[in-house]
Nucleic acid binder design. Structure first.
Lengths: 229, 229
DNA sequence: CTTATGAATTTTGAATACAAAATACATTCT
DNA sequence: AGAATGTATTTTGTATTCAAAATTCATAAG
């Protein structure tokens, strides 16, 4: 397949590339919460000098993924139960407005897309495929966010989601909670299809609140296992 | 008066200090939207080298106050009508949850404080003191935010408020709108005093939505005067 | 044996130096 | 005259260097 020679040449500053890579490493859990981020190590790892690396760390710090301590360096931000308790109500509120706005702007084609994704997700659920379920779940929420036609809102929501993404393994949904979540998603989709913004907002907010309950339970269950300070 | 020798010695990195100063300059409008931020100029102005300055600019860029263009430098982010249209619904949603949470956590003492501030604000309104009104208005919203006991939420709301603060001169409230705003505030306070979270959420959301309408009108009125691209 | 003390080492903070890209400007050609 | 091209200058991007602070580790005192 011939490459498109008219496509713009990809050129980005190092600090951008670095920020993105580090963000990915942190959000995906490849860098453990609390892990010290030695500038020297990261520099040799990425083959760059300290200047762009430090600039990237400042950005990630502003995003809440990295904690900088003066004269003591950078570390991957810890994800405490408190952080989750704070983040989820905010995410709930943001998803709620996103839902309202989406009802106003979403196209029929997008709704159809969502319905397809939803059915695939239900199939994943019935097959017990947790990974596939999570992936489709994210795609659905991402699509709603996009349909809200508010880039600022989307960016804030993604930033928050990135911060708490590392907790998704803690969740460890019970069978009953999983079933409940699927049910909630069905209702969410119906509200979208009828463009009932108010109802959708309520559903999304509740959905997030329930998610928090699950995470909280999973986290307080193995109290001793959560030694991350 | 003897100085407290046991007080911790104030020591902060330059990039922190720089970020804070620049943030203030931008938010308060001392640096005009769209204004180019030459590294050389800022360095000589603050008497620092480029390294910490650049780190500060990265942070402000992440906050949305500065726009960085590769190989083309930094500029104060422009505040378009679109930005406001995006920001206000988000602020409304955030204030709404803040209100709900505040109803759950606020103390009687804090409610009393709010009532006092509110009455002073009404007095400022009746005296036609727009500056005093704005200041007290901000303090009230700030207090509600604090009463929500959710630092993450407060930080996000402040970040958003900072971005749009520059628009507060555009608003140019009409007498009728001003009266309406005061009325809304009275209702907000009553909801807080009765700890009616749901009602408070609705009121705050409406309050913000109305504010947007005002700003939008002020902005579309002098269409030609808003040449800021 | 435990706890301080202090030097050596490592790591971060900031400034300078060097390289690459963009802008401004003069010159040439049509 | 106007557009285009090439060169000089300025500005940004990155690396390196220097300075200051924190950590480590060895040593000595209690």
């Amino acid at each position: 397949m011939p490459m498109d020679v008219t496509a713009p040449i990809e050129r980005r500053p190092l600090h951008n590339e670095l920020a993105e890579r580090l963000r990915h490493l942190i959000v995906e859990g490849d860098l453990a919460p609390g892990e010290k981020l030695s500038e020297r190590d990261l520099c040799s790892r990425f083959g760059v000098s300290r200047t762009p690396l430090r600039e990237a760390l400042k950005v990630l710090s502003a995003e809440g993924l990295v904690r900088l301590t003066p004269h003591r360096g950078a570390a991957v931000a810890n994800l405490t139960l408190e952080d989750l308790e704070e983040a989820f109500p905010i995410m709930g509120a943001l998803e709620a407005v996103a839902g309202e706005l989406a009802c106003m702007h979403i196209t029929a084609a997008e709704i159809a897309q969502l319905r397809t994704a939803h059915e695939k997700m239900v199939a994943a659920y019935e097959a017990g495929d947790l990974g596939g379920y999570f992936a489709l779940n994210e795609r659905i929420h991402e699509t709603i966010l996009k349909a809200a036609r508010n880039p600022t809102l989307a960016q804030m929501q993604r930033g928050l989601a990135g911060r708490v993404r590392r907790a998704r393994y803690m969740a460890n949904m019970s069978a009953s909670r999983w079933a409940q979540a699927v049910g909630e998603h069905e209702a969410i989709l119906e509200a979208l299809e009828t463009r009932d913004g108010e109802r959708l907002a309520m559903l999304l907010k509740t959905h997030l609140a329930n998610k928090l309950v699950t995470v909280r339970e999973a986290l307080t269950a193995d109290e001793d296992g959560s030694r991350n300070d």
